[in-house]
């Protein structure tokens, strides 16, 4: 009743959630059993940057457009083309509409 049977597999979210919660509890237990000589706010928690001063947190923050730059850079060719397609010009939007209409017309005319 509660899960789904797709005919090829089964998905029961309640069982999954219970398992996940169990895993979280185990992780939490491990965390609690951690080292007792760790002190918050002391020299231990400071980042070590080869002896350099730690920059301000505002400067360390990875901003939105810096995330995944590697992936985007790897796909630069694709992105150059696909962004060129999004011209922002209304006539082009209408052209795409007419183009799709043409393709659908061909397919429907040819298929019996």
């Amino acid at each position: 009743m509660n899960g789904i049977d797709t005919g090829f597999g089964v998905w029961n979210p309640i069982a999954w959630t219970l398992l996940f919660a169990g895993a979280l509890v185990i992780a939490w237990v491990f965390r609690v059993l951690g080292r007792s000589d760790y002190k918050r706010g002391s020299e231990q928690t400071k980042a070590f940057l080869s002896g350099n001063e730690e920059p301000e947190p505002e400067k360390l923050h990875v901003r939105g457009d810096h995330l995944y730059w590697g992936l985007v850079d790897g796909l630069a060719g694709y992105y150059r083309r696909i962004r060129a397609v999004h011209t922002g010009v209304l006539s082009d939007y209408v052209a795409w509409f007419v183009g799709v209409l043409g393709v659908v017309l061909i397919i429907l005319a040819l298929v019996r």
Partner: peptide
């Protein structure tokens, strides 16, 4: 039936409704 006119009407409906639904490549709006 499956006459030519019916097919053209279907093509117009598919294209028009797919555009309003936002299917690529008619999604730019």
């Amino acid at each position: 039936g499956g006459t030519m006119v019916d097919r053209v009407a279907l093509a117009l409906l598919i294209a028009g409704l797919a555009m309003k639904a936002g299917a690529v490549p008619m999604h730019m709006w």
